[in-house]
């Protein structure tokens, strides 16, 4: 157990494992995502209320889902950084934060475009959209702080503190935004909450969520590998690896 833990912290070990798994992650991710989206776009039946505009759900929900769970993953990594000082954990946070920002932006963008045919405006101060907007700010803050601190070690730990403070706040923010929303505009038409979604709708949705997760895994591995190379460029194993041409 402890040996495994120790190994997990070793960038060299991770580099090897990631290199081995990445082709599988990429292939299965692309396959599932393509299948899910094609199914959702062409074969799933139209929604009886929203017509075909609901087909945005197949990218809106996966990006929103991933953006939120990535922040939670970052928080777990932040705890590991602060408590065990594991190098890989802060590599993960640094590598993943920009991806989270992009996914959050995507879910906001798709939500706004979806809102146009559904609500008649591009932007509604709906509880979910607003929470996602705040999540975008949180990601932005994490990236800005990371960029602002030159020293790598302090940057990692400062960012870890910020991520943890953010994750404590997320439930409070969600709760208060929901409350604020009911205060200002009671019972609007929710984008993604359906009384019951037929199987032909939720199976492709599930597929695209899974596919995007796998693609994110690939992307995270790749970006972590890059970050590891930058940090460990003076070490023996990087030299052996690069000279052997197995980057």
């Amino acid at each position: 157990m402890w040996q495994f833990f120790h190994k997990l912290g070793s960038p060299k070990w991770f580099y090897g494992i990631a290199t081995r798994f990445m082709p599988w992650l990429l292939a299965s991710g692309l396959l599932l995502l393509a299948g899910g989206l094609a199914w959702g776009l062409a074969f799933a039946p139209a929604d009886y209320l929203q017509g075909n505009s609901y087909r945005i759900i197949f990218i809106h929900v996966p990006t929103a889902f991933l953006a939120q769970s990535m922040y939670i993953m970052m928080a777990v990594a932040a705890v590991v950084t602060l408590v065990w000082r594991m190098k890989l954990a802060d590599v993960f946070v640094k590598a993943v934060a920009p991806v989270g920002l992009v996914f959050t932006f995507l879910s906001l963008f798709t939500g706004a475009v979806w809102g146009k045919p559904t609500w008649g405006t591009w932007w509604v101060w709906d509880a979910r959209l607003t929470s996602m907007l705040i999540l975008l700010f949180l990601y932005g803050g994490v990236i800005a702080l990371d960029r602002a601190i030159n020293d790598e070690k302090s940057a990692a730990r400062a960012v870890a503190v910020l991520v943890l403070v953010g994750v404590v706040n997320i439930p409070i923010i969600k709760y208060s935004v929901n409350w604020w929303n009911t205060l200002h505009q009671p019972a609007t038409f929710k984008l993604t909450e359906k009384p019951s979604m037929p199987v032909e709708m939720w199976v492709p949705l599930l597929l695209s969520v899974l596919g995007l997760y796998l693609l994110f895994g690939w992307l995270a591995c790749l970006r972590m590998k890059t970050e590891i190379l930058v940090r460990e460029q003076k070490t023996r194993w990087v030299k052996d690896l690069v000279m052997a041409g197995r980057g």
Binding site: I134, F137, L138, G140, G141, A144, L145, A148, L162, V165, G166, N169, I172, I173, Y175, S176, V177, W179, W180, L183
Partner: peptide, 23 residues
């Protein structure tokens, strides 16, 4: 930078502060 980091965290307090007066 301080404003960027902190403003999102201030949102719940702001919401409940003004919401209470509205109520």
């Amino acid at each position: 930078l301080l404003s960027l980091l902190i403003i999102p965290l201030y949102i719940p307090v702001l919401i409940f502060g003004t919401g209470t007066v509205a109520a």
